[in-house]
Design a binder for these strands. Structure first.
Lengths: 192, 192
DNA sequence: ACGAAGTTTCAATTTGTTCTGAAATCGAAG
DNA sequence: CTTCGATTTCAGAACAAATTGAAACTTCGT
C-alpha cells in the first residue's frame, strides 16, 4: 500500500531501489512498526515516518521522506511536528543547507521512555483529573442509597488508585535521562 | 452512534438519566473511560460497555446495555464478544432466566493484567515474529555494503531485544493469577 | 527589500472504521 | 420436532480519521 513494487529503477543515488534486499528489509520494518502503531492509536503515517527515520539512522529532510514513503508534503509536515512534539524525533539544521533535517532517537529504551512520557501527559493525567471530578459528583449526592453510593465510590477509588500508582511509577521511569525504564526492566527481570 | 441529527453531544443520556446524581457520576466515568480507550485504539463502544459493566458491578443482560447506552443489539453483541475474548468480561447465566448476563472483572490489577495479556498476544508477539523475519531478510543480503548492513542489523537487534525483554517480563506479570502486576508495581515503587 | 527555497496550514476529499437493523441462526422447553 | 425468545451475522449506512494539494506564510541570501 505504501511502496510501489517494481518501478523503473532510477539512477539517482537517493532513489529507492525496490530490489535492494537492505531496503526491502527496511520496508518490512517500516510496515511492521506501522502496524503496531496503528493498533495502539498512532496514525499509520506517523509510525511510518518514525520507523523510516529510526531505521535509516541518519538525518533526512522532508523531501527524502516524501519520496521514500510516497506521501504528500502536507502529511510529512504534520507528521514530523507530531513526532517532534513527542520528543522522539529532533529537528536539525545542517550547515550550509537551508532545509531542515530530522533524526529519530536511536536508543530504544530512551525512545520507549519518551513515548511513555508523551502518552502519560496526554492521556493518563487528564483521566486522573476526570476521575477526581467524577468522584466529587458522586460525593455530593445526598439522595442516593448510602450502600450503593459507598460501593460506587469504592469502585472509582480502586480504579483511581491503581492508575495513580502507575502514573507515579512512570514519573520515576522517565526522570532518569531515559535509562529508568531500562533499569526497571532489568531489576524486575532479576527479582520476579 | 447517536440517533439524533447533528448537534448536542449525547442528548439521550441526559434525557434518560438527568435526575440521579449517582447515574450521572456513572455516565461521567463511562465517558472518560471511553475517551481513554479510544485514544489507545479500543473502539469507543467497546470501552463504553466495559465501563458500564465495571461501574455497575453487577451482571447486566444485552437489553440492559442497549437501553442504558442507546446502542443497537448488533453492536452490543459484537462488543460483548470482544470483551469476553479479552477475558475482562465474563458471561453468566442467571437462575431461572433464559438470557445471558455479563459481568466485568472487578479487581483493577487483575483487569490490567488481562488487558496486557490480550494486547501482548495480539500485537507484541506478532511484531516479534515479524522482526525476526525482517532480520533474516537482511541477513541473506550478500550484495550490500558490509558496514551499512551491520549498522542496520544492529538497529533491528536493539529494537528486537528491548521488545523481547518486555515480552518476557509481561509473561511473569500475567502468570501470577493477576497479582503479578500489583506485586511488580509495589516492588518498583519501593526500589526506584 | 525582494525573490527563491522551504515549511505550514486547512478545506475538500479520500480512505477506513464502526454501527445499525433485519434476517439467519441457535437452543431450550414443551 | 416445533416454537419462541435470545443471539449472532453481515451488507450497507453513517461516521470519523487521515491525506492531499495549493495557497499563505516564513526565512535566508543578496
Amino acid at each position: 500500500m505504501s511502496l510501489s513494487p517494481a518501478n523503473a529503477p532510477r539512477p539517482d543515488e537517493d532513489a529507492v531501489l525496490a530490489g535492494d534486499p537492505l531496503d526491502r528489509s527496511k520496508d518490512a520494518f517500516i510496515a511492521h512498526w506501522a502496524d503496531m502503531g496503528s493498533s495502539w492509536g498512532v496514525p499509520r503515517s506517523v509510525a511510518e515516518v518514525h520507523a523510516l527515520l529510526f531505521i535509516e539512522g541518519r538525518p533526512l529532510c522532508a523531501e527524502d521522506i516524501m519520496e521514500r514513503l510516497q506521501v504528500s508534503r502536507g502529511s510529512v509536515s504534520t507528521t514530523l511536528r507530531t513526532l517532534a512534539d513527542w520528543g522522539i524525533v529532533t529537528r536539525s539544521r545542517q550547515r550550509g543547507e537551508r532545509k531542515e533535517f530530522f533524526e529519530a532517537e536511536q536508543d530504544v529504551w530512551n525512545l520507549l521512555s519518551l513515548i511513555v512520557r508523551a502518552r502519560k501527559r496526554r492521556e493518563l493525567e487528564p483521566l486522573l483529573a476526570a476521575l477526581e471530578d467524577t468522584k466529587a459528583v458522586a460525593d455530593d449526592d445526598a439522595s442516593a442509597d448510602p450502600a450503593a453510593l459507598k460501593a460506587h465510590l469504592a469502585r472509582l477509588d480502586s480504579m483511581h488508585d491503581a492508575l495513580r500508582r502507575l502514573d507515579r511509577l512512570s514519573d520515576r521511569f522517565i526522570g532518569r535521562g531515559g535509562k529508568g525504564l531500562d533499569v526497571a526492566v532489568r531489576l524486575l527481570s532479576s527479582l520476579l
